[in-house]
């Protein structure tokens, strides 16, 4: 399988006069063509920052990539000029934002918003008529009747607005789609519709996808690989099968699973992770999870944990030191 995206040792900081937020701290992952990678973690884990740095949309001047490479089809995005980057966005990759209410322009017809993307990115030489036709095709693709192109966002429900946002992202048929919590703002029955549609479109257009979510149910349903993030680091990286199978896991992953009530019942009490996420301006030394970890050892407080590989299953934790390549215990 060939790799479409490779992120190597990426670090991102937000700098202000008062403080420096260490949002992403040396993460690496790669994404194969046609696959979906889930970025899982809680608020402040650095998921959205990772996505924004891939798209080079970090807020300026506070957001700074301090180290690392982002290779899209072999090209390091961090070396590109703004103009080159702009040409890439939309055509090669695009993003779906969490909140469909605020991602759309309230005073522009939805058809115009899709056409805008097409004119700016995909099809500079197309005639007005061709653009119109593409707009209609794109709307139909996401399950909105073409005649609604002349309506404004407020005339659409939440689920339909998210479909419009997806239509804009897909208008130029990008190779890579980054979806940042695309269904968090939606009701479950609508979420099911949107997720089913996204999986279908991914197969149809042969896209690769990064799915940012905090919902392990969505991971089980749509992702091939999973990266669990905590305090700006990837603490565990595995296939979806591995993450959901018993065996060696990072204590944070275990805590995350212990925190969700089981839909099938049987749980009487949850086993949450004690404590809170660390302050990203003052991250703990050693392993960033050690203040909350039930398996804390002496070296966890001072020594950053090694990344241990069980074949393609990576865990950054002192617990598994020396167990590499030994297979899952």
């Amino acid at each position: 399988m060939n790799t479409i995206l490779e992120v190597k040792d990426l670090s991102v900081e937000y700098r202000t006069d008062l403080e420096t937020v260490h949002a992403v701290n040396g993460i690496s992952f790669s994404l194969h063509r046609g696959q979906t990678l889930g970025l899982v973690g809680e608020t402040g884990a650095g998921k959205t920052t990772t996505a924004l740095s891939i798209l080079r949309l970090l807020p300026k001047p506070t957001g700074v990539v301090t180290a690392g490479e982002i290779l899209l089809e072999g090209v390091n995005l961090l070396d590109l000029s703004d103009a080159q980057m702009k040409a890439l966005l939309g055509e090669k990759m695009s993003m779906i934002f969490q909140d469909p209410m605020s991602a759309l322009n309230p005073i522009m017809k939805v058809g115009e918003q899709i056409a805008e993307t097409l004119i700016l990115h995909g099809a500079p030489h197309q005639t007005k008529k061709q653009v119109e036709q593409r707009v209609e095709e794109t709307l139909e693709l996401v399950g909105i009747p073409a005649f609604r192109k002349n309506e404004y966002p407020h005339q659409f429900s939440g689920g339909m607005k998210q479909r419009v946002v997806i239509a804009i992202a897909l208008a130029c048929q990008p190779h890579l789609l980054i979806a940042d919590e695309p269904t968090t703002a939606l009701d479950v029955t609508i979420q099911a519709q949107v997720l089913a549609m996204m999986s279908e479109l991914r197969n149809k257009l042969d896209m690769s996808m990064i799915m940012i979510t905090h919902d392990l149910g969505i991971v089980a349903q749509v992702c091939d690989d999973v990266a669990v993030m905590y305090a700006g680091e990837i603490v565990e990286y595995a296939t979806t099968e591995q993450i959901f199978s018993p065996g060696a896991h990072h204590p944070y992953t275990t805590g995350l699973f212990g925190s969700i009530p089981d839909l099938k019942g049987g749980t009487k009490r949850l086993t949450p992770i004690e404590g809170l996420m660390p302050d990203p301006t003052e991250l703990p030394s050693g392993c960033k999870f050690h203040p909350r970890c039930p398996h804390k050892m002496a070296q966890c407080e001072t020594v950053p944990p090694p990344t241990v590989a069980f074949e393609n299953h990576l865990i950054s934790c002192h617990l598994y030191t020396g167990q590499a390549e030994g297979g899952l215990k």
Binding site: S157, T189, Q191, A192, G217, A220, Q221, F244, S245, I260
Partner: peptide, 26 residues
């Protein structure tokens, strides 16, 4: 029934199940 079928379940047993999506909106 539709509500229960729509929830993404966090385990592998339901992985490749095609969820019964109810059509339409509220």
């Amino acid at each position: 029934k539709a509500l229960l079928a729509s929830v993404p379940v966090a385990d592998l047993s339901m992985r490749h199940r095609q969820p019964e999506v109810i059509r339409g909106e509220i």
